[in-house]
Simulated scan of single mutants.
Amino acid sequence: MDKHVGFGSVSSTDGTLVVPPEVRRELGLDNPDTVVEFVVREGEVVLLPRVAVHPNDVWFWEEGQQRAEREADEELAAGEVNPPMTGAEFLSHLEEVTGEKLGEGQ
């Protein structure tokens, strides 16, 4: 359902769009770093708030990583987790997996 909350404006010099304060508060757009997607739909402009992802974090949102995260969440929920290993246990595990002897100082 549409809700009319007022008018914004576009700066004639640089095209900056001014969003009414009521809209910014309701949609959480008060943060100056907020990202908004512009969609043109049947002659109207629709603004969609979006969460910006830092370029260093893009890998986390790729489908394969998200699938692995969901699997890990399911394992945690089912209690299918191993207790944390000590440093010595971890090195022993690595030796088993790699078949290499990991001595001290390496």
Score class of each variant (00 low, 15 high):
1 M>L: 06
4 H>D: 05
5 V>R: 09
7 F>T: 06
7 F>Q: 12
9 S>Y: 11
10 V>H: 02
11 S>D: 14
15 G>I: 07
15 G>V: 05
16 T>K: 13
19 V>P: 00
20 P>I: 11
21 P>Q: 12
23 V>W: 05
25 R>Q: 14
27 L>T: 00
28 G>W: 08
29 L>N: 00
29 L>H: 00
30 D>Q: 10
30 D>F: 04
33 D>I: 00
38 F>Q: 03
39 V>I: 12
40 V>G: 01
41 R>V: 12
44 E>R: 11
44 E>T: 12
46 V>E: 06
47 L>Y: 00
48 L>P: 00
49 P>T: 01
53 V>R: 08
53 V>G: 02
54 H>I: 04
55 P>K: 10
56 N>K: 12
59 W>T: 09
59 W>E: 08
60 F>T: 08
60 F>K: 09
63 E>P: 09
64 G>W: 03
65 Q>S: 11
66 Q>N: 01
66 Q>P: 01
68 A>N: 07
69 E>V: 06
70 R>L: 03
71 E>S: 03
71 E>Q: 04
75 E>M: 13
75 E>Y: 09
75 E>D: 08
76 L>G: 05
76 L>K: 13
79 G>C: 11
81 V>H: 13
81 V>S: 15
81 V>I: 10
84 P>H: 14
87 G>I: 08
88 A>H: 14
89 E>V: 05
90 F>D: 10
90 F>L: 15
91 L>A: 12
91 L>V: 14
99 G>V: 05
100 E>L: 11
100 E>K: 10
101 K>V: 10
103 G>V: 10
104 E>H: 05
105 G>M: 06
106 Q>L: 05
